[in-house]
Each structure stands twice: as structure tokens, then as C-alpha cells.
């Protein structure tokens, strides 16, 4: 072990770290409550008069309330995430530098590495494949927010949310299809999360970059200078 060559680089601002865990918790909540909304697999409140039942149990009404509250958290944390990107370089790592040939080369390299064709890859603060994945994830979150608030708001078609996001309904072929897309994307995000968590742990265990802890303390360990170090330093 060449402990002495390990470089500790400070990457994630405290804001980003806080955002990340808020985001994680809100999505987890949204996903679980969303699944129930899509298919209420347990009966919430047998034996109570329907009008008052919501106050007593885990009812559809209550679960929707949690979903929408978490939706608001997601929305504001998302806006917050965009906001902080203006102030700290390390918070802009999700931008794939598609205008650079190196980006594409690196992307191919990462893919080849993950499918075991290429045994190694260059060291990055944030590799091109990850950058692209995060960007797509942000787009997916935006999609969830737009479709979510469109559905949420259309109970008042002349209200604020309907005016803001109502346009998405005819675009997706009616509100039924909005539900379906919202539902499909929910799974997409969760599948991202599974792969994401795996890769994070993988980096921690195999490449020993202290990945997991980075989302707590903001630091990662590198055995050599990452090729994209300019993006943080």
C-alpha cells in the first residue's frame, strides 16, 4: 500500500451533500407512496366512516398527502440543487463535457471497463459515464416534477400549477398517459438508484476512493491525480 501517494481532494460542498440526502429521502418516500397510489394494495381504514377515516389510518388520502408533501420537498431541493451549481465548481460535475473529444473517449473507456473488456480506466473526479447518467437523472426528476405537479394541479384547471405545467397533458396524450409516464419513470429512477448505489459501493470497495463517505464529508481519495481535477480545483 502506497498510503503516502493517496490524495484527498475536497469535492462536494456541504450544500450538495445536504441536498443529496434530502433528495434521497424524498425520492424514497415518493416512490413508496407512489406505488401505493398506483395500486393501493392494502385497505386503509376498514370500519370507519369514509369521510373521517383518513384521520385514523394509513389511508389513500394520507398517503397522497405524504406524496405531495414529498413532491414539494423534491421540487424545492431540485431548485436548490440548480441554484448551488452557480457557486461552487464541485457542484457542477453533473455537466457532461460533450463538446470535448476526451469526454467521448472516456465514455467509451468506462463502458468497456464495466463490461470487463478493458481492465482499467483513468482516474476521474467524476467519470464521463457518471456525468451523463446524473444529467439524465436530473432530467428524469424534472419530468417527475412536471408531470407530478400537472396531475396535482389539474384539480383546479385554472390554478397556478395547471397553468404552469398543464401543457404537458395533451403533449403526452391525455391525463391517463401522464399517469402512466409518471409511473414508468418512477421505476426508471429507482433502477438508477440501485445501479448508482452499487457503483458507489463498488468504487469504495474496489477502487478505494472513499466514495460513500464522500457524500458525508465531501472528500474523496485518489491514488493519482484525476484527469478532470480542473473541475474541482
Amino acid at each position: 500500500m502506497r498510503e503516502e501517494t493517496v490524495k484527498r481532494i475536497y469535492i462536494f460542498s456541504p450544500s450538495l451533500r445536504i441536498w443529496h440526502w434530502v433528495n434521497f429521502l424524498s425520492i424514497l418516500t415518493l416512490f413508496l407512496t407512489g406505488l401505493y397510489i398506483g395500486n393501493p394494495f392494502f385497505i386503509g381504514s376498514v370500519g370507519h366512516e369514509a369521510t373521517y377515516a383518513y384521520a385514523r389510518n394509513l389511508t389513500m388520502d394520507f398517503i397522497r398527502l405524504i406524496h405531495f408533501s414529498a413532491g414539494y420537498v423534491l421540487l424545492f431541493s431540485f431548485l436548490f440543487r440548480l441554484f448551488i451549481a452557480f457557486f461552487y465548481k464541485g457542484d457542477r460535475l453533473f455537466i457532461p463535457k460533450v463538446w470535448r473529444a476526451n469526454f467521448w473517449k472516456g465514455l467509451v473507456e468506462m463502458v468497456l471497463h464495466y463490461i470487463f473488456i478493458k481492465p482499467w480506466h483513468r482516474t476521474y473526479v467524476r467519470n464521463p459515464l457518471a456525468r451523463l447518467a446524473y444529467l439524465l437523472l436530473y432530467l428524469a426528476l424534472a419530468f417527475m416534477i412536471i408531470t407530478g405537479f400537472a396531475m396535482y394541479g389539474l384539480s383546479d384547471p385554472s390554478g397556478f400549477w395547471a397553468k404552469l405545467f398543464g401543457w404537458v397533458v395533451p403533449l403526452l396524450g391525455g391525463e391517463f398517459m401522464v399517469h402512466m409516464w409518471h409511473h414508468w419513470f418512477a421505476w426508471l429512477i429507482i433502477i438508477f438508484a440501485i445501479v448508482h448505489v452499487y457503483l458507489v459501493i463498488r468504487f469504495d470497495v474496489i477502487e478505494k476512493e472513499g466514495e460513500v463517505s464522500s457524500m458525508f464529508n465531501g472528500m474523496k481519495n485518489f491514488k493519482e491525480t484525476p484527469v478532470d481535477v480542473e473541475d474541482v480545483a
Binding site: L35, G38, N39, Y114, F116, M180, H183, W184, A186, W187, I190, I191, I194, V195, Y198, I201, R202, V205, I206
Partner: peptide, 23 residues
């Protein structure tokens, strides 16, 4: 969606484990 989603998620998780072991 739920059936497909569940299946893909399970596959992703299993794939991740397998990938991890090989890696």
C-alpha cells in the same frame, strides 16, 4: 409497470451483485 419495474429492479440488483463479484 409494477410487474416490469419489479422484474427490472430485481435484475438490476442481481446484475449489480454479479458484476461486483466479477469486478
Amino acid at each position: 409497470a409494477d410487474k416490469v419495474g419489479m422484474a427490472v429492479a430485481a435484475a438490476a440488483a442481481a446484475g449489480a451483485v454479479a458484476h461486483g463479484v466479477i469486478s
